[in-house]
Design a protein around this nucleic acid. Structure first.
Lengths: 106, 106
DNA sequence: GCGACATATGTCAAGACGGACATATGTCAC
DNA sequence: GTGACATATGTCCGTCTTGACATATGTCGC
């Protein structure tokens, strides 16, 4: 978005910014949200690259299709822990997980 | 340990190897354990470098001294999630966390 | 010895997270 | 349209994680 348009919107009473700014998240909270997002995107990509359905991955993981959908969808009810387990179960190494974690998402 | 000694021990009925091998952990389980260990060590180092006591860090984190001790001690009752939150609260960035996660621990 | 402080360990009630299931939506080929 | 398949969303209930607290151990200086 260019500066001019933003100014116009702000003048009209809109707030412009990303989700973190909008929700007034602390830096730590933002980092957590970004990590979740980065991991869930990586998970979806790796799963698809492996030619697996959510159901198939769920089975490997010992979980259910619905939970995998939530993992990939960034649902608030899933922990970093499960995201990481899922990545490992699609063949990611510790290093791969680290990379995914730091991956740019904005 | 040199090979000769290992052979001797194994001949005597001992099993030689690291914790993962001993407990027969799957690669994914090992990776998780290593991540926990790597993060907890990094947490302790960063906390001490920051000149914080466990009690002080607990306060920042909104937790308790005993839980911080467990975090740093690699207690099985703590999640990766909390470990990461703790690291963020001692000033680590997303990238720092990623580094810590991949850090060698063996 | 004895306080003062930092850290470790154990327990527990309350809340968060998990798998399972039902159901909804979407997209194909036929 | 309909059947088959992949994914999304919502709820339930048992289990795991949590903060709080008590208590133990360790280490200083005095």
């Amino acid at each position: 978005m260019d500066v001019k348009k933003r100014k116009r919107l702000e003048a009209a009473g809109w707030t412009v910014g990303d989700a973190a700014a909008f929700l007034k998240l602390s830096p730590e909270e933002s980092a957590l949200v970004e990590m979740r997002l980065a991991l869930s995107r990586t998970l979806r990509e790796r799963r698809q690259a492996a030619g697996l359905t959510q159901t198939a991955l769920a089975k490997q993981l010992g979980s259910s299709q619905s939970r995998v959908a939530k993992l990939e969808g960034g649902d608030a009810s899933v922990s970093l822990e499960l995201l990481i387990r899922a990545l490992l179960s699609v063949g990611a190494s510790r290093k791969d997980v680290a990379h995914a974690l730091a991956r740019r998402v904005a």
